[in-house]
Design a protein around this nucleic acid. Sequence first.
DNA 1: AAATACAGCAACCGCAATCGA
DNA 2: GTCGATTGCGGTTGCTGTATT
Length: 284
Amino acid sequence: MGRTPCCEKEGLRRGRWTAEEDDKLKKYIEANGEGSWRSLPKNAGLLRCGKSCRLRWINYLRTDLKRGNITPQEDETILKLHTTLGNRWSLIAGHLPGRTDNEIKNYWNSHLSKKIFNTTKKDAPQKSGSKRSCSSRGQPNNKLTIILKKNKTNKTTIPKESSQSNSIAEEEQEPETTMPKEEQEPSKSGHNSTTKDPKIEEENWELTTDVEKRQNGVISTIIESGEWFYSAWPSSSSNFNNEWMNWDWEGDGVLGQNVCENFKEPSSWFWANNNTNGEGEECR
DNA sequence: AAATACAGCAACCGCAATCGA
DNA sequence: GTCGATTGCGGTTGCTGTATT
């Protein structure tokens, strides 16, 4: 019989909320608490669907929301968390008190993704061309993903003395919030250091030194650096890239990731590897 | 000053997960 | 265990203000 609509569509208001509606909703929730979103509009005297009320409350009316611009520190935190968690906005928001998933998602789409994608574009003209060329409505195809993983044979943490690179994981200051261990490890199925992603052939991730390989027709690079190794490949090879992103290898997960355009430039391949060869192109 | 393009963000939509009878 | 109701999430849309021509 199909899905049951969350609310009756007819006769309900849509679009921007008025101050009066906000006031009604706020007063009702303050008096009765959150929840029962389906019946809330009727009880509160609002001509809105419950879903809309919930969204309005969560994203705008809650008293614990922090309004105002994202701070540089929050910016860094979002970047780091997105590196590890991907587009799990609610999880990311959970580490930024007073910020909502919607706010962070919007911030990412309008600021951070653009920032990353444009970093290797020296000219990066924004005046002309498609309005959404770098936003969520049209991301460049030529992306390079660089990840940093811990050498499977080693358990120690990343050496600070070699942290000169631009890697997100290495360069960042301590964020104002700390990610709980379990959320750094998206896979909850008890992976340990001896487990491997079954979708990745051993030959693909076994350490090599500055050797380009072709994997399924896509060039990738795996660079050994002491206890760590780096891997880079165009994001178009997302069939296994995403698996790596979410894979809990050593309990530390993926430590660094970035994307940039023009991956054909050899220097950009080594973006995450500055600490080992002193070269590389700054992507941020 | 008007028209147009662009950027930011609030809100909507659909799907999936969860809850509870 | 099943199924409908509810909630939560992420992707997307489109309105609005600002910048540019």
